[in-house]
Amino acid sequence: MSWEGITEFVAVVEQRSFTLAAKKLGISTAKVSRQVNLIETRLASKLLNRTTRVVTPTDVGQQFYHQCRHILDQLEDAERFVSDQQLAPSGKLMVTAPVTYGERIIAPVINDFLAEHPRIEVRLNLTNQVLDLVQDNYDLAIRLGHLESSSLIARRLGNRTLYTCASPEYFSEYGTPEAVSDLNRHQCIAGTSAHWQFKVAGRVTTHRISNPRIRCNSGIGIRDAALKHLGIIQLPDYYVAEDIGNGALKAILATQQIDDDGIWAVYPQTRHVSTKVRLLIDYLIEHLYR
């Protein structure tokens, strides 16, 4: 069996484009096309349907792709196994995390991790989009809250607490809400969602902030407004925990606060998890909230 063209064929199917496949592999589009043509000639079978907009596998091409993908996965596992036997782990890690949580929490811990592992490189992409780890070639993603069902492996890194709070000066002037319904009489500052979460009578409920004084799609901007006594906010702990701790903000409605949800490290399911990924996850678990 010849291996020639297998990698190129798999990349074309996954990217649905010769151009994007070439970009992913770091070679020319002409070479990708030539290698795929060689496979089709060798097998005497049409594997791809080509149009000006998209490339899709034929029925036999789809089956061939699954077999090839399985073989390449096994080869990558074998290479990772050999690489992981080195005394010092090395190589590149592709990581993604939400923007603000990544800036404030994840990036500093990863920087400390890299200081301890000088042969490891990290490419950290901060985005609030939920990326396809397999298609986009990421080793690890940090995700917050409820996880949708998927084939990814998840390890819990810690918990996230949602606080409803404002400055003591605000409460001194306008009074302190004693119940969720009292929020209707207050200046509230909303983010991308105007629905705040609470736990009432043992059940999670939502309260709509119908006429927020400020609406802002930045947690940092919302926090700043609260610190300047402009109203009540609801944000996760990594925005406001320090402010609550030093008295700049005061948390309210503690008995209606929802249970903590999770902070997760997720990664593609393979038989052999690389030492680099395992080391980084263990480091995050140990150092995120020490």
Rank of each mutant, 00 (worst) to 15 (best):
I142K: 01
A194D: 11
L114S: 05
A194F: 13
I189E: 02
H207V: 12
V122F: 06
R203M: 09
S167C: 08
G202C: 10
R156M: 13
E121M: 03
V180N: 07
I209P: 02
E148G: 12
Y170K: 04
L157A: 06
L126G: 06
V122N: 05
V134D: 14
N184P: 00
D139Q: 02
L157E: 00
F171S: 04
L144G: 04
R203H: 13
R119P: 00
D132H: 07
I110T: 05
A154C: 09
S193H: 09
E178N: 13
P177Q: 12
T205V: 15
F198M: 05
F113G: 07
V134P: 00
L152W: 05
D136S: 15
V130Q: 15
L126S: 04
G145E: 02
D112K: 13
Q129D: 15
R143G: 09
G145P: 04
Y163M: 05
P177D: 10
S150K: 01
A166T: 05
G175M: 06
A179Y: 10
H146T: 14
V180C: 06
N128I: 06
R160W: 01
L124K: 00
S149H: 13
I110R: 00
R119A: 13
E173M: 04
A141P: 02
E121F: 08
R156D: 08
A179D: 14
A115K: 10
K199I: 12
R208H: 08
I189T: 03
I209A: 09
L140E: 08
S167V: 10
I110G: 05
L133G: 05
A190S: 14
E178A: 11
N111Y: 12
Q135F: 01
V122H: 01
S193G: 06
Q187P: 00
A179V: 10
I189V: 15
V200Q: 12
H195E: 10
L144C: 04
Y174H: 15
S151V: 09
I142V: 15
T192S: 13
Y174P: 01
R119S: 15
A115Y: 08
C188K: 03
E173C: 01
R143Q: 15
E148C: 03
I142H: 05
Q197A: 10
G175Q: 10
E173K: 09
